[in-house]
Simulated assay, not measured.
Amino acid sequence: MLIFDRQVALKEHLKSISYPKTTIGFVPTMGALHQGHLSLLQESLQNNTITIISIFVNPTQFNNNEDLAKYPRTLESDVQKIKSLNESILVFAPKVDDIYEGKTISEHFDFDGLENQMEGAFRPGHFDGVGTIVKRLFEIIQPTNAYFGEKDFQQLQIVRKMVEKEQLPVNVVGCHIFRESNGLAMSSRNERLSAHEKQKSAIIYQTLLDAKAKFGTKSAENIKEWVANKFERETDFKLEYFQIADEATLLPCLRKSKNRKYRAFIAVFVNNIRLIDTISLN
C-alpha cells in the first residue's frame, strides 16, 4: 500500500501510472474511518481504475477550536482498515502546510445561498473551509469521480454547486448513509460517545422516521414544533436545529409542493458532541 504525505509525490505517482482510459475515484475524509467511509471506497473500487482516499483534518472548516483539537486522529488504524479492504488504494495524508503552504485561510465562495442554511447558519465560515479544501484536493488529484456520504447532505449539495461554478471536470456521487444497528448515522464523532450515549442517540434517527411519517398529513411547521417539544423533554440532548427543506435549494419548506423533493435535517448535541442526520421525505 502506498501512502503519500506530500502532494508533489502523489502527483508524480499519478502521472507515472495514468493512461488514456484511466479513471480516478476519490474519497475525501478527515479520518477516524468507519463502515460508511469504507462503503464509499468500495463504490469507487467498483467503478474506477484507481482509487484514492485523503485523510486530512481540515482546520479551516472548524469554527470551534476545541472541536478541532478533539477531533479523532487515528491514521494508523485508518490505514489498516483501508489495507484490509484493498491494498491497491492510494492514501493521501498530507500535513497542513503541504495543503495550505503556510497560509491556513479559506477562500470565499458564493454557493447561491446554500451556505446560509442550517449548518451554515450555526457554523460561520464552515462551508468556505469545505469549499477550499475540496477544491484544492480536486486540483491535486484531478479525480474522475468523487464520493460523498449523504449524511452530510448540505455539504454534498455545496460541493456540487462548487464544481458547477468552478467548472471542475469532476462527477460528484452521493452515497447512502450507513447506520449503526440502532439507526444512529455512522460518524467519526461517534467515537467520542460512551456506550450509553450511543445507545440513547437512537432517538435522533427515530425522530427523523417519525417526522417522515407525519409529513404526509402535517405541515412542516407543525412537525418542527413537535420535534422541538420532544427534545425539550430529553435532558441528555440539546437540539440545535430541526429543519424541513427543499433538497435543491435547501430553503425551508413553507408550503409543500408536489413537484419538489424535501428532506428533514437535524443537529443535536450529546454531552457537547455534535451529531447531524438527515432523511428524504419523498
Results as ranks from 00 to 15, higher is better:
R263F: 03
C175M: 08
K151I: 08
A248Y: 11
K83Q: 11
A185Y: 04
L90K: 09
E43K: 14
L254G: 10
F148K: 03
F242A: 03
R73F: 12
I55P: 00
K218I: 12
A245P: 07
S219E: 06
P143Y: 00
Y19K: 13
P124A: 11
I24K: 08
N47H: 15
N65C: 07
I89P: 03
T60I: 15
I52P: 00
K81S: 13
H37C: 01
E87Y: 11
K230L: 14
G129Q: 00
A121V: 00
G120V: 02
L208C: 12
A213L: 14
Q42G: 02
D78L: 10
A202M: 07
L2G: 07
E119N: 09
E66M: 10
P143C: 09
L114V: 07
A248M: 14
K256M: 10
K230E: 10
I99S: 05
E107H: 15
V173S: 06
Q142D: 12
N259Q: 14
K83E: 15
S219H: 08
M30T: 01
K161C: 14
H13Q: 15
I55T: 02
K103G: 03
E221R: 09
L40F: 06
F62T: 13
I223N: 00
L208I: 13
S44H: 08
L68A: 14
N63C: 15
E247N: 07
A195H: 11
D277I: 01
D246S: 11
Q35M: 07
I105F: 07
M30Q: 06
S16D: 12
G120R: 02
D128M: 01
G149Q: 00
I177F: 08
S18P: 05
E119Q: 07
D5P: 02
L250W: 02
F127H: 11
G183E: 11
E247T: 11
I177V: 15
F148P: 04
L254C: 10
L239E: 13
I89A: 07
V159Y: 09
L251D: 13
E43L: 10
R123W: 04
N229Y: 04
I99Y: 01
A267F: 03
M118N: 03
S88C: 13
G129H: 00
E197C: 07
H126G: 05
P124G: 11
K165N: 14
R73P: 12
F265E: 02
M1I: 12
G25Q: 02
Q46L: 15
N64Q: 10
I223G: 05
G102A: 07
L2T: 09
D246Q: 07
A248K: 15
M162D: 02
I99A: 05
T60N: 05
E232L: 08
F148M: 04
F111S: 01
L193H: 05
R189Y: 04
R192Q: 08
F138A: 04
V268W: 06
P28C: 04
H196C: 06
T51K: 00
N48V: 09
D152N: 07
H176P: 11
G131S: 15
F242S: 02
S16W: 06
L40G: 11
T235A: 13
K165Y: 03
D210W: 11
L90P: 05
S219Q: 06
D78Y: 10
N63T: 08
N48W: 04
V96C: 10
N271Y: 13
G113T: 06
W226V: 13
Y205I: 05
S39G: 14
N47V: 09
E76K: 11
H176K: 15
L275G: 05
P94Y: 05
